[in-house]
Amino acid sequence: MEEEKIFNKKITRRDFLKKSAQTGIGVGIGLSALSTIRIAHAEKKGEVVISPMTFIVPRPTLEVMDDYNLIVPREMGYFKDMGLEVSMETGPDGMASTKFVHQNQADVGYPSPGILTASIDTGMDVILAYEMMIGSVWHLVVREDSQIKHPKELAGATISVWDISWRTIVDPLLAELGIPLDSVEYLTAGPQWGQAVQQGQADVALGWLALDVQWEAVGMKMKFFRGTDFSEMPSNGYAVRTADLKDPAKRELLVKFMRGSSMGLHFGRFNPQAAAQMTYDTYPGVREQMTPEIALESMRQLAHSYVEGERRGLGYGAFVPEGWQKYLDIIYKIDQTKRHLKVDECITSELVAEANDFDRARVERDAKNFKLNSTWKDIKTRGPFF
């Protein structure tokens, strides 16, 4: 198979924001869930062996608040201390999060459960090794004046999506709600999928966590039915090649990457403004789209869900197998997979304990001692990070 080239397919944040303002588009975790790490050859820098790694997302831009858990360990030197040099790139589509991992072009992806299970069902050698959030990231979005008062009332609705592949996300949600799949229609509206609901071309749009803040920033006010209120199914996480877990050297690099993510999440709990400042200052496009207050709230919504496993005493990156079992049962029942996949084919907790093995006191001390600049020192959070 001819190797696909993926690292040069990007659009500028300015171009994307211009389109966002015109269409009401919002980006972030949802498009990530619809991403990918390539371990290159290690290079010695002084006495430290540095292993370059690339994190790839399928969304057309990196300039969002979602990946603060990777920005923090990069800026605070945690990755460097572990011998990692992590760069971040965009990928061409959602399937890149598993396809390029399977093809050995990347080492970690960020797929949604739908992309992950479809990939495993077709024989790809991938498995989720780090859960970014427990519970559903997905929201269903209607106009503020909509007569739809609960997601259970969606029978007969027209559902707006960017691409028809998003149906692999929506159909299981509908099935979980008890809505016949043949009772709804889909409108493929591209980047104007949210605007299509605003203009009355569709009744409901697929949304996700923190999209409300991003759409509000460009003048779109909608009613969001939050997935955690009506769904028990899982969300996206970090996928790896199953074979790499059996290779000690590759496995150790993956552990270090996951550990860096855990350190970034932990830092953000103790000084969210600092984590937001680092991410905000990294991306000029975020500064064009969001005020610091909106950026912090966008990050807060994500962060509160990212740390659910830690709140439950399970650790960062932990899984809840019961939610995965329910999801696998549903997607098999609605013929999304040919096989009735098993939980242990799709997720593994073998890296989670090691990903949580870091000096928490050091990270908390670093967070406490971080000096906020004049822009961030007086900004307050709207809700909890713990």
Rank of each mutant, 00 (worst) to 15 (best):
G313P: 00
R362N: 06
Q325S: 11
L372Q: 07
F319N: 00
K326T: 12
S374D: 13
R360P: 01
K326Q: 14
L351N: 04
H304L: 14
T375Y: 12
I331T: 06
A367P: 12
A303I: 15
S298D: 15
D335K: 14
I347R: 05
H340G: 06
G323F: 02
D378W: 12
R365P: 12
D335A: 11
G313I: 01
R312H: 13
W376A: 07
S305D: 15
Y332V: 07
S349G: 11
L351C: 05
R339E: 15
H340E: 14
A367S: 09
S374Q: 14
S349V: 13
H340V: 12
V307H: 04
A303K: 14
Y316H: 06
I334H: 00
Q301L: 15
D366V: 05
N356L: 06
K326V: 08
V352W: 09
M299L: 13
V352S: 02
F319A: 01
E354I: 10
I334G: 01
F358Q: 03
R311Y: 09
I334N: 01
G323M: 03
C346P: 03
K333D: 15
R312F: 07
H304P: 08
S298R: 10
G317M: 05
V352G: 03
R360Y: 01
D344F: 01
V363E: 07
D344A: 04
K371Y: 00
E364G: 13
E322H: 00
F370N: 10
R300A: 09
K377L: 08
R339K: 13
V352M: 06
S349R: 11
K380T: 08
T337E: 02
F319I: 06
V352P: 01
Q301W: 13
A353G: 02
Y306R: 08
K338M: 08
K333I: 10
F370R: 04
V363I: 15
D366M: 08
F319W: 03
D335N: 14
R300K: 03
K326I: 06
I347T: 02
T337I: 00
T348Q: 00
G315I: 03
E322N: 05
A318L: 04
K377M: 14
R339N: 09
A353V: 09
A355D: 04
F319V: 01
K326R: 11
E345A: 09
R311T: 12
L341A: 09
W324R: 02
K342T: 13
A355L: 04
G309A: 03
N356R: 06
I334P: 00
I330V: 08
L302Y: 12
